[in-house]
Amino acid sequence: MLVLGIESSCDETGVALYDSARGLLAHELHTQMAMHAEYGGVVPELASRDHIRRLVPLTEAALQAAGKSYADIDAVAFTQGPGLGGALLAGASFANALAFALGKPVIPVHHLEGHLLSPLLADERPEFPFVALLVSGGHSQLMAVRDVGDYTLLGESVDDAAGEAFDKTAKLLGLPYPGGAKLSELARLGTPGAFVFPRPMLHSPDLQMSFSGLKTAVLTAVQKVRDETGSDNIPEQTRNDICRAFQDAVVEVLAAKAQKALLDTGFRTLVVAGGVGANWKLREVLGGLSVRPPAAKGGKRPPAEQVQVFFPPLEYCTDNGAMIAFAGAMHLQSVQKAGGFGVKPRWPLAEIVKGA
Rank of each mutant, 00 (worst) to 15 (best):
H203N: 13
S212A: 13
S204R: 09
P235G: 15
K215S: 09
V225H: 00
H203T: 14
T216N: 10
L219C: 14
R239Q: 14
A217K: 04
R226N: 07
A217M: 11
Q223C: 03
Q208E: 08
L214R: 00
I234R: 02
L207R: 02
L207Y: 03
N233K: 15
S210F: 05
P235F: 05
D206C: 08
V225R: 04
S231N: 14
E228M: 06
T229P: 02
V218N: 02
S212F: 02
A221E: 04
L219W: 01
H203L: 15
P235A: 10
L207G: 07
G230M: 00
Q208T: 08
P235I: 05
R239C: 14
D232I: 00
R239E: 06
D227P: 00
Q223D: 05
E228S: 11
F211M: 14
V218L: 12
V222N: 02
R239S: 12
G230V: 03
D227H: 10
T229G: 13
A217I: 12
G230Q: 01
M209R: 03
Q223M: 07
K224W: 04
S231V: 06
T229R: 09
N233M: 13
D232Q: 12
V222K: 07
E228K: 08
P205H: 06
G230A: 07
A221Q: 09
V218I: 14
T220I: 13
Q223K: 08
L207I: 03
T238A: 15
S210G: 13
N233S: 11
Q237V: 10
I234V: 15
Q208P: 00
V225T: 08
P205T: 06
G213I: 08
L207K: 01
S212Q: 10
L214P: 05
L214W: 02
F211S: 04
F211Q: 02
A221G: 09
A221S: 11
V225Y: 00
K224S: 12
S212E: 10
R239W: 03
K224A: 15
S212K: 11
E236W: 05
P205V: 07
I234S: 08
L207E: 02
S212I: 13
T216S: 15
R226W: 02
Q208L: 08
D227Q: 11
S204V: 05
K215W: 01
G213D: 05
F211G: 00
R226S: 05
P235Y: 04
G213F: 04
L214F: 09
S204Q: 06
F211W: 08
L207F: 01
D232H: 06
L219E: 09
Q223E: 07
T216M: 11
S210T: 07
R239F: 09
D227V: 07
E236G: 10
L207V: 05
D206H: 08
L207Q: 03
D227N: 11
